[in-house]
Structures are given as structure tokens and as C-alpha cells.
């Protein structure tokens, strides 16, 4: 079943695995506004990292710099051995390896679900149409909505649409999945179906970076939690460390506000 993914589930403990994302000394400004301050982060293969933080803390901006949807001014980002530069070829190469799920779905409204998923594999990965569509159907099966293949995005509920975007990102067989607040735009009763898919994905060994406000998900699924505030990383730790024994004053304050 996991043959669908480019990644294999590793059994080695996290510390012994190779780094797949390395961010060093990352700085970004919007004009004069310093939105990312000396961010350092290393993510291991197959690791699930949840990024928490108050709104406006730069967590979304951070995750978007990783696949060059935002530019940065200082520092280095290395993804799967490729250093992110301004070279467009380089950027496209990194984008092929990183799937992204947006808060507002961003499905292509003029195409059927099947086409939404198979378009990039056909044109970017240059797969045969049949192969791409087979994989698309298989992925739809996996996210639980195979019967929606020939509908248009507008005909689906929010939760279904978000599951399609996950399938669409997975169809490119990425090594890393980035989630930018995937459940924030959903009606409450649809949050669970999306989180369930993400949980399954995490269990299958995918490397995931998740910006979210879902504390339950963070506690249950994350290997590590990163707390952002004012554009810098305040604290990094396992869920137990961070939730039960936060070290930093700002972490305590943030947790007290949401728990």
C-alpha cells in the first residue's frame, strides 16, 4: 500500500536518520518589518513537526519560504540536499519534492477532481495519463472519497475539498508535506475527517511540517513541536516536554490562552 509514496517508512530511531530539511539563520523582512528572525530548524526524515504560535507570529510565512512561495533575505534552506536559491530550476526541483496543502484549498475550480489530481503528475512528472489517473483514483480511495472523482471542486464540502488537496499534493510523490493551517477554514464537523487523513499519512512515514491550531493533533501525532512567536522560534520540544513542562515564559502564556 505504501508503494504509492516515494518515501519508505523508516524503522530507525529519529536521531539516527538523515536530515531532510535544514534551515540555518533564516531572516526575512516585509519592507521594514522583520518577520522571521534567525530561524534555525532541522527536520529528520519521516519526522512530524507541528508549528504552533499566535497569529502573526510568522509560522505560515516560515512554512511558505520552504518551497519558495515567499522570498527570504538571509540564511540558508536546504531541502533533500538541494539548496534553495533564486534559480528557478532549483525552485521547481524543490517544489516537486514538497507537497503543500493550503488553508483555502486552492483546488482548480474549472477541472474535475480527477484532473485536479492527475494534471501535475502528467505535465510535471511526465507520467502517462493512464498511470497518473490510476494513482489519482487510488489516492482518492485512500482519502475516502473515490466516488467524487468526476465532480467539480465546487460540488464538494470543505472537508472533502481539503482531502482532495492532500491527494493532489501526494500524487506528485513528494518527500515532504507542508500543511499551512489545513483545518482553519473548515466547519467544525469536518475538521476530524481531514485530521484523520493527516494522521494516517504521518503513520505511513511521511515527513510533515504542520502549521495548525489543533492541539489534540499536535499532542497525538507530532514528534516535535515548535513554538513561534514574534518571528522567532521560542521553544522546541516533544509534545510531552512542551505541553506538560514548558520552559519558556512565552510558551506558558501561549498555552494558557488556548488550553
Amino acid at each position: 500500500m505504501d508503494s504509492l509514496f516515494a518515501v519508505e517508512k523508516l524503522t530507525t530511531p529519529l536521531e539516527e536518520r538523515e536530515d531532510i530539511i535544514t534551515v540555518r539563520n533564516l531572516n526575512k523582512w516585509f519592507d521594514d518589518l522583520h518577520v522571521l528572525k534567525n530561524v534555525d530548524l532541522t527536520v529528520k526524515q519521516g519526522e512530524v513537526v507541528v508549528i504552533l504560535g499566535p497569529s502573526g507570529s510568522g509560522k505560515s510565512t516560515f512554512i511558505r519560504t520552504l518551497n519558495a512561495l515567499e522570498e527570504f533575505q538571509q540564511g540558508t534552506i536546504k531541502i533533500d540536499g538541494i539548496e534553495l536559491t533564486n534559480d528557478i530550476k532549483n525552485i521547481e526541483e524543490i517544489r516537486k519534492e514538497t507537497g503543500m496543502v493550503f488553508q483555502s484549498f486552492n483546488l482548480f475550480p474549472h477541472m474535475t477532481i480527477l484532473k485536479n489530481i492527475s494534471l501535475a503528475p502528467i505535465w510535471v512528472r511526465k507520467w502517462k495519463k493512464r498511470k497518473a489517473e490510476e494513482i489519482a483514483l487510488e489516492l482518492l480511495e485512500r482519502v475516502g472519497i473515490p466516488e467524487q472523482a468526476n465532480k467539480y471542486p465546487g460540488q464538494l464540502s470543505g472537508g472533502q475539498q481539503q482531502r482532495v488537496t492532500i491527494a493532489r499534493a501526494l500524487a506528485m510523490q513528494p518527500k515532504i508535506m507542508l500543511f499551512d493551517e489545513p483545518t482553519s477554514a473548515l466547519d467544525p464537523e469536518m475538521v476530524k475527517e481531514v485530521l484523520d487523513v493527516m494522521k494516517t499519512l504521518a503513520e505511513s512515514g511521511m515527513t510533515m511540517l504542520v502549521v495548525t491550531h489543533e492541539m489534540g493533533f499536535a499532542r497525538q501525532v507530532a514528534d516535535r513541536i515548535v513554538l513561534f512567536d514574534y518571528g522567532e522560534i521560542v521553544e522546541i520540544g516533544t509534545p510531552q516536554e512542551l505541553f506538560d513542562n514548558p520552559q519558556h515564559e512565552r510558551t506558558k502564556e501561549f498555552l494558557s490562552q488556548i488550553l
Binding site: N67, R95, F102, N106, A120, V124
Partner: peptide, 15 residues
């Protein structure tokens, strides 16, 4: 068109 359409296409690796 919303910016998300451009971003989604870019994120999938389209040139």
C-alpha cells in the same frame, strides 16, 4: 483570480 490559484500551481511544480 485569487492568488491561491497561482500558488497552488507553483507549489505543484508547474513552470
Amino acid at each position: 483570480l485569487p492568488r491561491g490559484q497561482f500558488e497552488a500551481a507553483q507549489a505543484l511544480g508547474f513552470n
